[in-house]
Simulated scan of single mutants.
Amino acid sequence: MASEQAAPLLCAAITVYSPLNHFGLKESGLRGAILGLGGVGHMGVKVAKAMGHHITVISSSDKKREEALGHLGADEYLVSSDMTRMQEAADSLDYIIDTVPVFHPLEPYLSLLKVDGKLILTGVINTPLQFITPMVMLGRKTITGTFVGSMKETEEMLEFCKEKDLTSMIELVKMDYISTAFERLEKNDVRYRFVVDVAGSKLDQ
């Protein structure tokens, strides 16, 4: 595996592989969703699809529909503000991996889970999130979180990605592009990971 491909897997891929492994969600045939299609989210689609899951991408707008369905291989695309489609999808998912790193309500997504379904938080958010308890109680649902993974899981993930030929969508840049890369990150203008080629950069001694 090329170094520029292995590097982002140590963050994005393990972040989704670890909870699927830990919570017993690796078996084929499960119905899952990835909330937010960014660096972690796009690997979530790839890893879950490679496990044989039916995957829905949930996003706040329609702009990533073609990429999710056409390029990443997701099965369905759901815009969270489309109340009709959200209601149609109620009680249909075994799990949701929530990658959104900013404040957002949890109730709309809890309603999509089956009995015993899991909402797995991966986004670091400093604002308290809220939900009403019946949304969790009535379906015996779980709200949980995950942060990267263990060394053993990382080794397993790399072997899994190698076996399934999974790669991250990256943009390889040199050291002299760092400032521009940060500016583009602030504008959410990257699909989906920058990888810095330190060895190939001309560095001042």
Rank of each mutant, 00 (worst) to 15 (best):
F182M: 05
H104Q: 01
A7L: 13
K118P: 05
K141D: 07
F103C: 09
A90K: 13
V57T: 04
G117C: 15
G70E: 00
K152H: 14
P134A: 08
K63A: 01
R85Y: 08
G32W: 08
Q5H: 03
G139S: 15
E27K: 13
S179H: 04
D98H: 03
S81L: 01
D75T: 00
H54Y: 12
H71P: 07
I178M: 13
T133N: 14
K152N: 13
V79L: 01
G123P: 05
G29Y: 04
E66Y: 06
D116V: 07
S111P: 04
M157K: 12
K164R: 14
P19G: 06
E163D: 07
H42R: 03
A13C: 09
D204V: 09
I125E: 05
L129S: 08
T133E: 11
M83P: 02
L106G: 08
L110Y: 06
G44S: 01
S28I: 01
L121D: 04
G139D: 13
L203H: 10
Y177A: 05
E156T: 14
K162T: 14
E88A: 00
L166S: 04
E186R: 05
L20M: 07
Y17I: 09
A74R: 01
T127K: 10
I132G: 11
G24S: 03
G200K: 12
Q5D: 09
L78C: 05
D189V: 02
E66K: 10
A12S: 15
V79N: 00
D91G: 09
L20D: 02
P105L: 10
V47M: 06
M83W: 04
E155S: 06
V79Y: 03
D82G: 08
E159C: 09
K141A: 11
P128K: 14
S92D: 00
S3K: 13
L9F: 03
C11D: 05
R193N: 04
M51G: 00
I55A: 00
I132D: 05
I125K: 02
I120V: 12
V57E: 12
R65Q: 11
G139R: 15
K187P: 11
D62L: 01
E159R: 15
G32H: 11
E153K: 13
T167S: 12
M43N: 07
Q205P: 01
G38F: 07
E171A: 03
G52E: 03
T154H: 03
G117Y: 13
V136S: 04
H42C: 01
I132S: 06
L203N: 02
H22C: 11
P108E: 10
T154M: 15
H104G: 06
S60A: 08
A90S: 08
I14M: 00
L203P: 01
